[in-house]
Amino acid sequence: MNTKTRETVVVGLSGGVDSSVSAYLLVEQGYDVRGLFMDNWDADAEGDAGGYCTAAEDFQDARRVAEELEIPIQRVSFAAEYRERVFSYFLDEYSAGRTPNPDVLCNTEIKFRAFLDYAMRLGADWIATGHYCRVRRDDNGAHLLKGLDNNKDQSYFLHAIERDALAKTLFPVGELEKDRVREIAVEAGLHNYAKRDSTGICFIGERAFREFLANYLPANKGPILTPEGQQIGEHQGALYYTIGQRQGLGIGGVPGTDERPWYVADKNVQDNTLIAVQGHDHPLLQHQGLIADQPHWLNARPELPLRCRAKTRYRQADQDCEIHPRPDGKLDVHFDRVQRAVTPGQYVVFYQGEECLGGGVIHQALLAQDKNETAIKTENQAS
């Protein structure tokens, strides 16, 4: 029996199998477990009649799990907080020509701030979620570790939460493989043991992304150009596309070119133009480094320069790099090996072994072919 036999844990029950098993494991460990279902997208208030949000179905799953585990559950709306702290930022970033990751901000502002604050007002000692992460606690505080299932590790999305939030959080499935989580759900008699994992924009669900974004940022067609300035197609709105994107360009039959696919290499939302190049490994898609803004460290700021590993996308393998401080407070990150399609607006996340150190927002990507000249050029464009 866990020594913290009657400490109270409020679990974020989403209706999915991971949070459900998390609640079950905490019950088995002797905690006083309470469920909380978060409503964070108000389709009526947003004028969103697309019918894509699964909140009603998810709540019914969460409510049924609570009944199966014999724990209380509340349904709480954080839609106003989501709109103000997450979705407005999401739209601002796209408007500025960057590609944001709302899941990171959703964790920072909603799950580990609004939800945490609400749970503490309920008298909780801890909160818990179904994230595949782990926490190591020592005299220096709480340390965020990768989940043991490498295919499900979600530390990338939690790198920006506040350290006091991490100190109050439990991740019951972080020590487990996904297959074992489903097995436990079956053993526990949870009805949703086979429910498919959710994907899509955090709390908004799966939908045709460009059509959804057009509800808030109207389409404005423009030219797709080669780096030399030749028009080779027409896009639906430069802000809808991301660096390295292949799908949806509609480029074909360009005189003087071969059959290799085209990729977005750059975009200019002021001129409403896209630059496209041929070939997955075109030089304009190869980056040796980046400049990171808004650096956030989960524990004490490490001494810089620092050798560590980093990733610029969730599914990317960790890459060897070196971090240097900049006078403006940003970070220079130089990779040992060239990285493909580093994208402003996304996040670079730093690791030492299994520990997530923190990260920052990608402000600029530095081309491998001439990173110094590129840095100056991009800095001038940014200012």
Results as ranks from 00 to 15, higher is better:
137 R>H: 12
172 P>E: 06
144 L>D: 13
162 E>F: 03
228 E>P: 02
204 I>F: 07
174 G>Y: 02
173 V>L: 07
218 P>Q: 01
227 P>L: 02
226 T>E: 04
221 K>I: 02
212 F>H: 12
161 I>V: 14
164 D>M: 00
163 R>Q: 02
220 N>M: 05
197 D>K: 12
210 R>Y: 02
229 G>H: 03
185 A>M: 10
184 I>K: 07
185 A>Q: 12
153 D>P: 03
121 R>C: 11
173 V>I: 15
187 E>M: 02
198 S>T: 06
122 L>P: 12
142 A>P: 10
176 L>K: 11
216 Y>K: 01
136 R>L: 13
205 G>N: 10
181 V>K: 00
221 K>A: 14
228 E>Q: 12
132 Y>E: 08
150 N>C: 05
191 H>F: 13
120 M>E: 15
139 D>Y: 06
163 R>M: 05
133 C>R: 01
205 G>A: 06
158 L>H: 12
216 Y>H: 10
191 H>A: 15
164 D>L: 04
211 E>K: 13
174 G>F: 08
157 F>Q: 06
187 E>K: 14
196 R>E: 09
177 E>T: 13
220 N>Q: 11
138 D>W: 05
159 H>P: 03
149 D>N: 11
189 G>V: 07
191 H>T: 13
156 Y>E: 11
218 P>F: 04
193 Y>M: 00
121 R>N: 08
162 E>L: 07
214 A>Q: 04
229 G>C: 04
186 V>N: 07
185 A>Y: 10
165 A>Y: 13
122 L>A: 15
